[in-house]
Design a binder for these strands. Sequence first.
RNA 1: GCGGGCGUAGCUCAGUUUGGUUAGAGCGCUGGAUUGUGGCUCCGGAGGCCGUGGGUUCAAGUCCCAUCGUUCGCCCCA
Length: 437
Amino acid sequence: MALSTQPYKGARDFYPEDKRIQKYMFSTMRNVVERFGYEEYDAPVLEPIELYLAKTGDEIVHEQTYVFEDRGGRTVAIRPEMTPTVSRMVAGRRQELAYPARWYSIPNLWRYERPQRGRLREHWQLNVDIFGLDNLTAETEVIQVADDILRAFGATHDMYVIKLNSRKLMDHIMNSYLGVNQVQAHTLAKLIDRMHKMPAEEFSAEVDAVFAPTQREAGAANKLIGLLKTKQLEHLPEAIRHHASVKDLQKLLDTLHDMHITNAVFDMTVMRGFDYYTDIVFEVFDKHPDNNRSMFGGGRYDGLVGLFGVEPVPTVGFGMGDVTLQNFLEGHDLLPKLRAETDVYVVLIGDIYDKALHTIRSLRDMGANVAVDTTGRKPDKQIKTAVKKGIHYAMFIGEKELKDEQFEIRNLLTGVAERHSLSRIVSIVKDYRIEEE
RNA sequence: GCGGGCGUAGCUCAGUUUGGUUAGAGCGCUGGAUUGUGGCUCCGGAGGCCGUGGGUUCAAGUCCCAUCGUUCGCCCCA
């Protein structure tokens, strides 16, 4: 039986044209986060399973993580997310770090699940975290970073919306306003998360079923459903409006709007799956009709570092996956035509490879990226190869060119050909490279 | 883990309903059209265990079962 040429289920091969897109996305991300002063870190793909058991706890560990036993009998997981790892790293050097610590990484992550649109088993995720700030400046900055990244790709504010909510607010509503117990609160949270996926009647029926008879008589379900329709913080009931979390949300929204991030809104249905969030959470939604869903999100998780037995470190961060991002960029037609890394394709005319070697060496010494066609084929075939590779310039070397040291360089997009000296050719080629950047 | 759609040339697909000679098309690839210059045109060529395994039949790309892959949705999550 022949070996399959397909990549492993839910994982992707990156052929050069695919890798070029990924490189473009990653470098755009890096440019933005580094502009905000974030430093890149990395860590092993493998972690002991305990790292995940300690926090996430539920399905993501037991059913959606790649786990195996190593030769020493240790149970090892392939990381499904970066947050536990980065928390571990911060905890490990908690005393010596310079706070606030602004860190980022673009790790490769694995989850064992059924692949579907926007969700594969393997993906890459930009992780941006700021450690050591227990005030709203952290949230403000991190959301600005997220917004700047999308805008660096050419996105405009009509293409996405940034939804904000607060875990503290939701806790307050559950405990004080609705008076439900922890189990009920958890069930309701999961329900609210799915609210937009079901008909209104079904939602209210399921909500109603969560409450005890006495709560039901008091109209708890209607109370909650009415609350969830609230779009403005000032329209919240008197009993909630003065809670500290509401003031925080309002302050954050005001600041973001002041920074021209006008597509940030309050949305009480944003819950986010992970239990480790402790305060403000946010989620960015694609507004494209074919792809109307959450792209990525994050929030404050002040408790994770403390799990390692050290003093807690307040943290705000988000993760942005490459698959959903690429869907977004493609959906809004934001992916540019990417140039090849090779600047010049040298077309050899006649059997002159040996004589041309020094000329080609000079091109490279002057900083041009040069590929040479050594197939000995006719020029027309060599040119076709250059075009197919997406190389912008073809340079011709034959007896005549070597003799008078003037080489023909052809722009393969426009078809325009000129004759120049080597150094002039290198500067033309480099100018084009800068233009593209 | 659950349910639906789809697997035929490198790609997009026709052919499957009603089993029947050597399985087709377009694009792409490749060679050529007076031996130094792409995209147009013309001529030629390569390339398919019809996803895989089993079953029914005189006969299977076509019918049945299984399996793998892929895709959409659910759970979960983002």
